[in-house]
Design a binder for these strands. Structure first.
Lengths: 188, 188
DNA sequence: GTTCTTTCTTGATTTCGATCAAGTGCTGTT
DNA sequence: AACAGCACTTGATCGAAATCAAGAAAGAAC
């Protein structure tokens, strides 16, 4: 099992050596090519994925065929649609990798099995709930500057991982505006 | 137990007569005066509340002391902070009633007890996940007109239950703009 | 009832980000 | 090296919603 996941779990909770052994047998490592889809629209989210390497985005296509990006992810993030996972109903959005990526897949059945064997795995629920990386610019009515600041503070790695037009789309601003924001920030 | 809750549960899942009996013993009925706080900031959300009568709002105060309304609720809605409830960490926002209200309180201990007695109560998890009434204007960059349309379609009752300045705040638009939107819609 | 307060409406003005447009620079391909 | 294609920058213009301002309407208090 990758050190990355071990560190992540140790940081978020308490797991024994035996827990890691149990977990290891359930993980499936997948290598995905740029653009491959992890969870398609209308599909039920029945696994969670730990992003070891690469990048992923979560998006949907609205009525006017715009791709609306609702989350960006980098190494160490969990990929799943909470709502679909919990309700067993079709996902309203797509999760796909943006670059060639490596992920661990952990199915819902595996999770149930693990919990049956060790109570430690109850902690997974909390991790998932916490780790919606997703910054809520959305609740507020933030200005482009505030949104960018937020990203710099909360998820600076994303700024390195994605081109600006993707960042701009995620922030719901135009690439031109993002360019001007960055220009302003660089002069501070 | 109020018919309202029975109907709600029957509509969302399958419960036996006995389930209802079990549930009834765990419910605590509370009468709240206008403005009373159900879940305060920094408090852990350790109960869920079914709003029988009245109205409630969920909000937080940002750095510049504006009250940011993130959800509005009417009779038949569940009140809770999912994230705080799941992670057992302090809530980032407040839930309070807007008018004199009646609610059923169901504690997390009660829920665990109920699930131990009847598997039916697993369904509660799904209900809660589904019933974030919360419309996501936030993911999109909707215009005032689109936001209002959304509300009319998805949660028309809110328009009757709250004054326009509250609605406007929820939609992140000014009361002036809301007034103009309504004027436009009335002429269609 | 009358007054006081708050909500809502309507109009005029301003402002910020989108759009339109052109140019620069980088990367990969042949 | 030359070119094509794409990402990013920079400037000019436009437009929609915020802000500013005043008045009308609806409630609450007396």
């Amino acid at each position: 099992m990758e050190k990355q996941l071990i560190d992540h779990l140790n940081q978020k909770g308490r797991y024994s050596q035996n827990d890691f052994k149990l977990l290891e047998t359930e993980l499936k490592k997948l290598s995905l090519k740029k653009g491959e889809i992890i969870l398609d629209e209308k599909e039920v989210c029945s696994s969670i994925y730990f992003l070891i390497q690469g990048t992923a985005l979560q998006l949907y296509t609205d009525d006017t065929h715009n791709e609306m990006i609702i989350d960006l992810n980098g190494p160490g993030d969990w990929l799943l649609n909470h709502k679909s996972f919990a309700t067993r109903k079709p996902s309203e959005y797509i999760i796909k990798v943006f670059n060639d990526s490596e992920v661990y897949e952990l199915s819902i059945e595996s999770i149930h099995g693990l919990i049956a064997k060790s109570q430690s795995f109850f902690q997974l629920g909390k991790i998932l709930e916490e780790s919606t990386g997703r910054v809520e610019f959305f609740d507020h009515n933030y200005t482009p500057d505030q949104k960018y600041q937020f990203l710099m503070e909360k998820r600076p790695n994303l700024l390195q991982l994605f081109p600006q037009k993707i960042i701009a789309s995620y922030l719901k601003i135009t690439p031109e505006t993002l360019s001007r924001v960055r220009n302003r920030f660089s002069k501070r």
